[in-house]
């Protein structure tokens, strides 16, 4: 299965304070909200990814395929595996379609 890789043209960073605030809310049993924890700068536009999106983005470093990515996230989130799998798949295919993520040519 092919590995997922961020488009190297895209400048991005984790917004650590916001990420921490969202994690603190989750910890306290509150809704995580849709706050952007990762920002992407693409052609002068800024896009923000929420906690799950940001985590997926962060893991797409060319070292993991989709299943490995889901497995890793499963350790972080206490959610139904099938739902997580669907959410991650949808998110990844959206970003691949936009050209923000690519499937690496090499396979494992």
């Amino acid at each position: 299965m092919k590995k997922l890789q961020r488009n190297s043209e895209i400048v991005w960073r984790i917004e650590k304070r916001r990420q921490q605030a969202v994690l603190d809310r989750l910890e306290a049993g509150e809704e995580s909200g849709d706050e952007g924890t990762v920002i992407l700068l693409i052609s002068g536009m800024m896009h923000q990814l929420n906690l799950l999106g940001g985590m997926i983005w962060n893991l797409c470093d060319g070292q993991r395929n989709l299943d490995q990515l889901v497995a890793e996230l499963q350790q972080e989130f206490d959610v139904d595996p099938a739902t997580l799998q669907t959410d991650v798949r949808e998110f990844v295919s959206d970003l691949v379609e936009r050209g923000w993520l690519n499937y690496d040519q090499s396979t494992d």
Partner: peptide
């Protein structure tokens, strides 16, 4: 997936 900015960034972009 994209939200309006609601909060200050952690550092400048430039």
């Amino acid at each position: 997936m994209t939200n309006p900015l609601t909060e200050q960034f952690s550092a400048p972009l430039t």
